[in-house]
């Protein structure tokens, strides 16, 4: 099979970009979308042209490095899979496929289809952690966790931080990502001590990065390769309200306890 690619090409952040059209060589329908790009790039390189830059790493749907908005949908036509798990058999021979980078102010473009998603890392650094003594593994079931909470926490923890939610949202909002990160720790006993500080810090960092707000359109949930539910956004909204009502902790008089 062969396809026509309309790809966004942009040399660097500050140079203007444009769509360029490429005809693919003959493809095996069982190639992944990224393998198709590899083949196209090899041909470009052979012709002495600059290959198309795109992000990829594990290519098995667990690292969250691949991106791409394919025909207007992040991660391509299917539900619950990342671009690397999208195969050419999902397209028809002769299709024109429009490939764009994730577009958001908080995701500045690096080159072609590669964008800088470090804003998500900075949100994680603001509060997406628990403070514990590391050491040897604790005994299993030392801390009891209700099964339903463990399941929900695992659902949230599936987030691979790819940023498709931001790319799909008409407001370029990172709410689904932040909600997943807030919830998966907030649902577990180990996450309780920092629960309210965490949600406050992460949401404030999200705002500082220049992401938009949530208008509950549901696009993020629909494109998420891990099918993270909008329920988690409601959970985060609850936690953030609780954190606001609690306010800042009481300042410690003197030098404190220690």
């Amino acid at each position: 099979m062969k396809v026509t690619l309309k790809v966004w090409r942009q040399k660097s952040r500050n140079t203007p970009g444009e769509f360029k059209t490429y005809e693919s060589p003959a493809l095996n329908p069982n190639m992944s979308f990224l393998e198709m790009l590899d083949v196209v790039n090899e041909e470009l390189a052979n012709r002495g042209e600059e290959p198309i830059a795109f992000d990829h790493d594990c290519r098995e749907g667990i690292c969250g490095t691949c991106s791409l908005v394919i025909d207007g949908k992040p991660h391509g036509p299917h539900q619950g899979v990342a671009t690397c798990q999208t195969y050419m058999r999902s397209f028809k021979n002769g299709d024109e496929i429009v490939v764009e980078p994730f577009r958001a102010r908080a995701f500045p473009l690096v080159k072609d289809l590669v964008v800088d998603r470090k804003a998500l890392d900075r949100i994680q650094h603001a509060g997406g952690f628990i403070s514990v003594r590391t050491g040897s593994a604790p005994d299993a079931n030392n801390i009891l966790v209700p099964k339903e909470n463990a399941d929900l926490a695992m659902d949230a923890a599936q987030c691979i931080g790819c940023g498709a939610c931001v790319a799909a949202c008409k407001n370029a909002s990172a709410m689904l990502f932040v909600a997943a990160k807030v919830s998966h720790l907030g649902l577990l006993p180990q996450g309780q001590p920092e629960r309210h500080r965490r949600v406050k810090a992460m949401v404030d960092q999200m705002d500082a990065e220049g992401f938009g707000g949530c208008t509950v359109t549901g696009s993020c949930e629909a494109v998420c390769p891990k099918e993270i539910s909008l329920d988690f956004i409601a959970r985060m909204n609850r936690d953030y309200a609780a954190a606001l009502i609690r306010g800042e902790p009481k300042p410690i008089a003197g030098s404190g306890a220690g």
């Binding site: 309309k6 769509f19 908005v69 025909d71 207007g72 949908k73 992040p74 429009v98 764009e100 577009r103 958001a104 102010r105 908080a106 790319a167 799909a168 008409k170 407001n171 370029a172 909002s173 220049g210 992401f211 938009g212 359109t217 549901g218 696009s219 949930e221 629909a222 494109v223």
Partner: peptide
């Protein structure tokens, strides 16, 4: 939050 629009507006879902 999105200074550059998509060629195809992503309204999926």
């Amino acid at each position: 939050a999105r200074p550059v629009e998509y060629a195809k507006p992503p309204t999926y879902g």
